[in-house]
Amino acid sequence: MPREKRASMSEAIERIQPGDSVALGLALEHAIPFAAGHELIRQNTDELTLIGPISDILFDQLIGAGLVDRVRAAWVGNVSAGTGYRFREAVESGSLAVENHSNLSIALALQAGAMGVPYLPTRSLLGSDVFDESDLFVEAEDPFSGDRLALVPAIRPDWTVVHVQRANAYGDAHFWGNAGAMNPAVGAAENVIVVAEELVDPEVIKSDPSRVAITREQVAAVVECPYGAHPSPLTGRYNRDNEYYLRYHRSTDTRAAFDEWADKWVRGVDGRAGYLDVLGDPGNLDVSEPTVAAEVTYGR
């Protein structure tokens, strides 16, 4: 029997240690593991390095909670409103180190990690200050064509945390909808935490192996957490709660206001069920006009 890795959210997140590097929020605005991030805040796991292309407001929340020393990302803010006030204040006060990437450079760094190679080349970056003002990237000449390229060194996160539609207790997961940089981040990580909307029997996952985005090898824990990606959307399940992002923007412009927000939504609740109690019924976000995929047949 394969090893079962089912865990509660608090058990799973306890495994992440202060000082670890964590990739999350990888599918861009889609399927952001907010419930897992909020558990990091409750456990006060600090000195973290956060990795991701854009994070929408999850990085801003972790930074606001004082947990983050360093960010390796292409964009940090609030997609609905622009600025992430906690990120901005942390950078401007000098308490947060930022490694500026483009979306492609962060995806390539993770892909290099996933492939087990030290770097990957790109035709992006050269000519920009993302390249010129960074000591991370290196310009090199392609030994075959002589072309000038930028080399992007591999990133191997200690942890990648993802939110998916369904997984089994071994850590194999189905995911659908746009994936952003999730696949390279899972491949590059030392350990993976899978948060699933729903835990299902292993036979369900094996009935559709082409939909499997994550296999069990690196998975350290599997957590069932309905609505765990709210306020971000999850394909086939629930829509983005746009108003939540706008309210977050309006209510976190000062440190004191952020603390009030965090006390209400994170520190003052014992998990996602408590968060949903504060939110009220999110049922109006549920997918109301489902598109059912054509049946897929495997067999022998």
């Binding site: 992430g84 950078v91 500026n100 979306n103």
Partner: peptide, 18 residues
């Protein structure tokens, strides 16, 4: 005399380059 931090590139640098 201050510097204001903005969100960053996202995919913009890549689009601009390529």
């Amino acid at each position: 005399d201050r510097e204001i931090r903005l969100p960053g590139s996202g995919g913009a640098c890549d689009i601009a380059c390529m």
